[in-house]
C-alpha cells in the first residue's frame, strides 16, 4: 500500500518537470495524418456527372445539376460529415479528399463550394485563345 502511494507520488512529482502532454492546438498545429478524412474536392474536368456521389451521400450534402459536359456540382460543407463515401463510390476517382479540417466560420454562404464544368471549359478555351 505504502509502496504504491510512494510510487505514484514519485511519478506525480516527476511530471512537474516533464513537458506537458497537452497540444497547444491553436498556437502549434500538428499535421493531420496522411490518410486523414477531410474535405472532398471535385476534380471537375474528370467528372461525368453520373450523380452517384449525390445518391450515396448520407446527409445530402451534394447537389448535381446537368450531365456530361454541363455538370454543375454544389458541395455543402456545412452539411458534410466527412465520411468520404462519395470519394469511395466514385467510379472514375473524380473526388479527392484533402487533409483540411478547420472549417468553422460565421458565414454559411461561404460554406458551399460550386464546381462548374462548363465554366471551366470556357475558361480553358479562353486561355487557349
Amino acid at each position: 500500500m505504502g509502496v504504491v502511494k510512494t510510487q505514484f507520488a514519485f511519478e506525480a512529482l516527476k511530471s512537474i518537470f516533464k513537458k506537458p502532454s497537452t497540444e497547444e492546438y491553436p498556437h502549434k498545429r500538428r499535421e493531420p495524418p496522411k490518410d486523414f478524412r477531410g474535405r472532398p474536392v471535385w476534380l471537375i474536368e474528370k467528372c461525368v456527372g453520373c450523380g452517384l456521389c449525390a445518391r450515396v451521400c448520407p446527409v445530402k450534402a451534394i447537389k448535381i445539376i446537368g450531365r456530361g459536359k454541363e455538370v454543375n456540382v454544389t458541395y455543402l460543407l456545412d452539411r458534410c460529415i466527412f465520411c468520404a463515401q462519395c470519394a469511395e463510390s466514385c467510379n472514375i476517382r473524380a473526388i479527392a479528399i484533402v487533409g483540411e479540417f478547420e472549417f468553422a466560420g460565421y458565414d454559411k454562404s461561404k460554406m458551399s463550394y460550386i464546381y462548374d464544368k462548363k465554366q471551366l471549359v470556357e475558361k480553358e478555351a479562353e486561355i487557349a485563345r
Binding site: S15, I16, K18, P20, T22, E24
Partner: peptide, 13 residues
C-alpha cells in the same frame, strides 16, 4: 499551475 503540471497538463497559459 502545480496541479496542472502534476497531471501533465499545461495549467493556465
Amino acid at each position: 499551475k502545480i496541479t496542472g503540471r502534476i497531471q501533465n497538463r499545461l495549467g493556465p497559459t
